[in-house]
Nucleic acid binder design. Structure first.
Length: 501
RNA sequence: GGCGAUAUAGCCAAGUGGUAAGGCCGAGGUCUGCAAAACCUCUAUCCCCAGUUCGAUUCUGGGUGUCGCCUCCA
């Protein structure tokens, strides 16, 4: 049974989908006004792993993620650069996709934008006004009236009176209650605007997510997610306005999931504080898969400190897993190309299966992997099971490579089947974590990679000749130069392996 | 001030009422022309105090530390 931690109840709950076999997810997206930073990446990587997991379990997943493309910060950026707000939002939406693609993040089923959802937003505000949950000021501003909402504060656990004490914001005297929030803002000069029953203006923050999720997922859907800082006020307000508009306090999202923050030197990273790393700059030194792996090595709700040391560590750990993957594919490549002489029926009978234990281990670890994911998507624990399988694969690989006089010629047919199965298990785990996709694809589908593959064979063969002549200077020189070029050679008792750094 | 998290080895990080996964780093070893990779061995009693219990790191209460939200923020 899948359990998820629901912020609403502050505990883990059994997950029951609203509709059998289907999962609907709304994840708060970004306001596209600058390059996404590593903190932005966390929720999207998290949700990507979650939806991959649901898909793997056979659910039909519907995943919606918005772009808040009408916003103060976008307008401000546009003014700074003397371009239109749309240029800014288009530019950074593009930047968003570029970076997320590098992180192997599957695209959402839909990326609604505020600017394209205006009618729905306006009609929702109208409903709230009609029902008496919102009031219109003389200048055309519309506010949500929190005092009309007896359930207000149920997600964040806040009471209306508690919030005033330490609030450092200047209270807008036109509001009926300090916690009232804007649904519609009348346009100031030089600002983009849309016509509405209350005059020219644009939506306030919060209402867009309500309108979009209801439009595309209906009055009830399974998950709503985002960063922990969105709990209040953003999600609180979404709940308030949505449930008020629908008239059902059990409507809207059923499970609220919030990821923890990324910190830099244990301080919260934030754009305003200036202590942030964009994903782009991290990707200059580390692959998207490593960044992704780094994020998933910690449970999504825990805080996560980012630093050069941490990401380096993740890269080393990732390489370890990748080595086992390479071992498996190496074995299979040899088997498929006929380098492996199968023992045939006669010799199979006298060959003790070396892979038997591995097969058992793989199945057990796969089960544990799923158990971990079932426990509130514990990718950290799930990955640890992958490491255990990795070790078993390495042991088997070394054993089989060291067993024959001429390398691997000891694989019985039954063991071969096991190797394929272990490959599938290992790649299934990797597929949920979302790693080993670029490299695998590259070899299969990329002609240039095939070429490099062939070239490497030539280089290695020549270097081997030098080694046989004990010309270590040339052999080492070739290895050093390849390393400088980004290719690592490993001389083993069973032959030479190469991989990209 | 209100609300909410969290405290596990040198570092990172899971987890359980019955003496603690995994990763990184470090030490020694196997293999090896060297290097690398891989493998083997070694490295914790879980912030403090009190309580519940046969037994708590795991539950309860208190304390302390750290972090976050209450203002745009993933």
């Amino acid at each position: 049974m899948l359990k998820v931690y629901n912020t609403m109840s502050r505990k883990k709950e059994d997950f029951h989908p609203l509709e059998k076999g289907k999962v609907s997810i709304y994840c708060c997206g970004v306001t596209p006004y600058n390059d996404p930073h590593i903190g932005n990446a966390r929720p999207f990587v998290t949700w990507d792993a979650i939806r991959r997991y649901f898909a793997k379990k056979g659910y039909e997943v519907k995943y919606i993620q918005n772009f808040t493309d009408v916003d103060d910060k976008i307008i401000a950026a546009a003014k700074r650069e003397d371009v239109t707000w749309r240029e800014i939002s288009d530019r950074y939406i593009e930047a968003y996709f570029k970076v997320m693609d590098d992180l192997n993040i599957h695209h959402a089923d839909l990326y609604p934008r505020v600017s394209e959802t205006m009618e729905d937003i306006i009609s929702m505000i109208q409903t709230l006004v009609n029902k008496g949950f919102a009031y219109v000021l003389g200048n055309g501003d519309v506010f949500y009236d929190v005092t009309k909402d007896e359930h207000y504060g149920k997600l964040s656990g806040r009471k209306l009176d508690d919030n005033e004490a330490g609030a450092r914001i200047e209270i807008d005297g036109r509001k009926h209650h300090p916690m009232d929030f804007a649904l519609w803002k009348s346009a100031k000069p030089d600002e983009p605007f849309w016509p509405s029953p209350w005059g020219k203006g644009r939506p306030g923050w919060h209402i867009e997510c309500s309108a979009m999720s209801l439009k595309y997922l209906g009055e009830k859907f399974d998950f709503h997610g985002g960063g922990a800082d969105l709990i209040f006020p953003h999600h609180e307000n979404e709940i308030a306005q949505s449930q008020a508009a629908i008239g059902d306090e059990n409507s809207f999202a059923q499970y609220w999931l919030h990821n923890g923050f990324i910190t830099i030197d244990h301080e919260k990273m934030s754009k305003s504080a200036g202590n942030f790393f964009t994903v782009k700059e991290i990707l200059e030194k580390y692959s998207g898969e490593v960044v992704r792996f780094f994020l998933l090595q910690t449970h999504y709700r825990s805080p996560l400190d980012f630093s050069e040391d941490r990401i380096k560590e993740a890269q080393t750990a990732y390489s370890r897993l990748a080595t086992s993957k390479d071992y498996l594919f190496d074995l299979i490549k040899k088997m498929d190309s006929g380098d492996v002489g199968f023992g045939g029926m006669g010799s199979t009978a006298i060959t003790v299966s070396k892979a038997g234990g591995l097969a058992e281990m793989a199945e057990r670890l796969l089960t544990l992997f799923y158990d971990a994911m079932d426990d509130d998507f514990n990718t950290s624990l799930a990955i640890s099971h992958m490491f255990e399988l990795s070790k078993e694969i390495n042991i088997y690989y070394n054993e089989i490579m060291n067993s024959g006089v001429s390398g691997i010629n000891q694989i019985s047919e039954s063991d071969a089947k096991i190797i394929y199965r272990v490959r599938d298990v290992y790649m299934e785990m990797a597929g949920i974590i979302g790693i080993f996709e670029k490299a695998v694809k590259a070899v299969d589908e990329n002609a240039e990679f095939k070429l490099i593959d062939d070239l490497m064979e030539i280089i290695i063969a020549n270097r081997q000749a030098a080694r046989e002549a004990k010309n270590w200077a040339i052999a080492d020189d070739i290895r050093d130069k390849l390393k400088a070029a980004g290719i690592i050679l490993e001389d083993t008792a069973q032959g030479v392996r190469w991989k990209r750094a």
